[in-house]
Design a protein around this nucleic acid. Structure first.
Lengths: 210, 210
DNA sequence: GAGGGGACCTACTCGCACGTAGGATGTCCG
DNA sequence: CGGACATCCTACGTGCGAGTAGGTCCCCTC
């Protein structure tokens, strides 16, 4: 007789015991799959547990609740994004290359970890304070790093530079998200460079005059 | 004895009878308030009914379900957005002014109807097919109108122009959303013009050279 | 002033999914 | 070998909110 397979799509076989930390990592990974695929609300704790080949109480021994589980994942990815952005801006001192590197960073970010970027950019929990806070804060951070560079080289006021920074980061986010849905119609390099060129020509139009 | 007031914040007095169409309009208005404030999931049909000064079954005599009610509102606002965008692009034949008008359109859009733009840009139902479809479709439409103009005046391929269009529309959306949260730190005209200038300098960097 | 229709209400059902109680089973050390 | 500890399970409590059944009230018409 074979091991029973539940009706749930690809539930892993029950029975393997794991040390605490390994199990935790696996639960996070399973949760990420489910949250990314279904969004927060449509994701069931039962399904996350099933996908990890484990029962629900185990899940609750690692995370106090559904929201905290989600936040743990969200933190991982917003930090990832901010770090990529920071590194891109620090990778060179020539601004034209900085712009290119930053767009690369966003395109890289949406290309990794399945489609984990959805947790950050398309969360169906943005109305919940702790989530909203994290997402906005991280985008704000990216924008501020960008606007700091802008302010160095232009005569913009702080408020203006912030708006420009937000706009540019938004453009990077949106274009990267769009590109990732058109699997292969444009090669990654070409897309990055196209957008970087658009952005660079745009900002370099703000000399010290205003 | 006075009319009783329920504990729910600003519920209207029960008792006024309305003809069918007027009631429907009022229900839509109440629903918009609640959906915008709380998002789809946290919005309760009871609260929508209460806010309209009516009981729940009345709501169900006008809309078959919560989702349909939401979609009715969503349709209104995505159409509004696309129309504003279309009119902006048709308002002149000089491309520099077109860019300005388009940014104005987005800033106008986020300024109207309370914060109804949240239904389109920050919906917590984007994982549900009919919603996703409407939102993406409408942004796609805006982007296509923009990319058509781009293709006329540059040597970009269709794919490239589409990506640029999406990026620009995304930038308009994000910057407008950000601006609206900073009530008054930058005047509307200034913000629009700043972003329009960024975009215009960017695109005008794509001459017929490809 | 009787009858019909439309607007409306109170009070309920019901399913779903988060979170939990209590118990079983394997592993490691004295 | 025996007990303690940690991992894991089945089975349930519970609350919330969408959607509904059935009846009331009022106006308008004949």
């Amino acid at each position: 007789m074979e091991t029973r397979v539940t009706a749930t799509p690809d539930a892993k076989p029950r029975g393997t015991r794991l040390p605490r930390l390994a199990r935790r990592r696996q639960l996070l990974s399973a949760a990420q799959e489910v949250f990314v695929q279904n969004g927060y609300h449509a994701a069931a704790m039962d399904e996350i547990a099933d996908r990890a080949g484990v029962s629900k109480p185990v899940l609750y021994q690692h995370f106090p609740g559904k929201l905290e589980l989600y936040l743990a994942l969200l933190d991982l990815h917003v930090d990832d994004m901010v770090n990529r952005c920071r590194e891109a801006l620090a990778s060179t001192h020539e601004n034209k290359l900085r712009v290119q590197a930053t767009f690369s960073a966003f395109f890289d970010f949406v290309s990794t970890q399945g489609e984990a970027f959805r947790l950050v950019f398309e969360s169906d929990l943005r109305n919940v304070a702790p989530v909203r806070q994290r997402v906005e804060r991280s985008l704000q951070e990216c924008a501020e790093m960008v606007s700091a560079v802008i302010q160095e080289d232009t005569g913009c006021t702080s408020d203006e530079a912030h708006l420009l920074g937000i706009g540019l980061v938004g453009m990077a986010e949106v274009s990267a998200r769009y590109w990732v849905t058109t699997h292969g119609s444009i090669p990654k390099d070409a897309a990055e460079q196209l957008m970087a060129r658009l952005a660079w020509r745009g900002i370099s139009g703000f000399p010290r005059t205003a």
